[in-house]
């Protein structure tokens, strides 16, 4: 080591420790403040869900007094909740399943069959940049012409198509790094075709990337609003998101009821996030974000 650097290091060690301590305190202060700011609206909605209009209007921050529990049974009754909850789960999980399979196949091809990413990759991921509004009306016309408007298949196919780009983007990046070429070569030399290789080697090795994509796609569909608003005018096949929005009602405004509805809507999303968060972060860290 260069003696000059060594000397400098020793000389500044004392002040370093002191500075570190202040930095740590500052760091935690910032983190705690930002976390509080982040969860405040969430906590407030929880508070509102157990109160009625009068309580919310007169004392926005007071604890429920008396505790109103009636909001929840009311939500379940008036938002046709079980039905729409089921619909939302169905849309989200079917979309995830189909998108994962389709996108993983494309990603396999793009990452392992081609020398460079090339135009095909660009073509697919261009979809990330295409705002849904630009294709909303023709999509509506297309689903109409296919006779799929106001049907579950109609909204599903739209969700699948619009989520492909993101999934292909993440999975291609992931497979390029996360699935070693040697393993694929070994299986092919052993006499497996690409299809078996895909199912036996590529998919299992891409688990983390798939979990990342699955979580994002699931949440994306769960929270989707615009397509549902346009394509699903039949209440029987509506999503939960849409029916909670309908709770807002133009002629009655029950803030407690609405808060309860919002709570019901966000709880599954939060649970899914908590359940998968390690995988999501791992997937992103493992190079998935690096295209």
């Amino acid at each position: 080591m260069n003696p000059i650097t060594a000397e400098r290091k020793e000389a500044s060690l004392g002040s370093f420790v002191f500075r570190d301590r202040i930095m740590t305190i500052l760091r935690y202060a910032v983190l705690i403040c930002s976390s509080l700011a982040t969860i405040f609206p969430f906590l407030w909605i929880v508070l509102c869900a157990f109160r009625d209009n009068t309580q919310i209007y007169t004392m926005p921050f007071a604890l429920p007094d008396p505790l109103i529990l009636a909001n929840f049974p009311k939500v379940f009754k008036s938002a046709n909740l079980f039905n729409t909850l089921l619909n939302s789960f169905l849309y989200a999980s079917v979309t995830v399943a189909v998108v994962i399979v389709l996108a993983a196949m494309v990603a396999f091809f793009l990452s392992k069959f081609l020398k460079k990413q090339g135009w095909l990759f660009t073509y697919f991921i261009a979809g990330i940049l295409i705002p849904v509004q630009a294709i909303l009306i023709p999509l509506f016309v297309t689903t109409r012409d296919l006779g799929l408007i106001n049907t579950m298949q109609g909204i599903l196919i739209v969700y699948i198509a619009t989520n492909l780009s993101f999934a292909i983007f993440v999975l291609t990046g992931f497979m390029r790094k996360g699935v070693p070429d040697e393993m694929i070569e070994a299986t092919i030399i052993d006499g497996c075709g690409p299809i078996r290789c895909f199912f036996m080697v590529v998919l299992p090795l891409s688990q983390t990337g798939i979990a990342t994509v699955a979580t994002f796609v699931f949440l994306g569909v769960w929270n989707e609003f615009l397509f549902a608003l346009i394509l699903l005018t039949d209440p029987a096949i509506r999503t939960l998101n849409l029916s909670i929005f309908m709770l807002r009602g133009q002629y009655s405004s029950d803030q407690g009821l609405m808060s309860a509805g919002v709570l019901v809507l966000i709880t599954p999303a939060i649970l899914i996030y908590i359940f998968f968060q390690e995988k999501v972060v791992q997937g992103l860290t493992a190079g998935a974000v690096k295209g």
Binding site: T233, M246, Q250
Partner: peptide, 10 residues
């Protein structure tokens, strides 16, 4: 088929 208020127009 229930739609409340102005959303009916849409």
């Amino acid at each position: 088929e229930v739609v409340v208020g102005d959303e009916m127009r849409n």
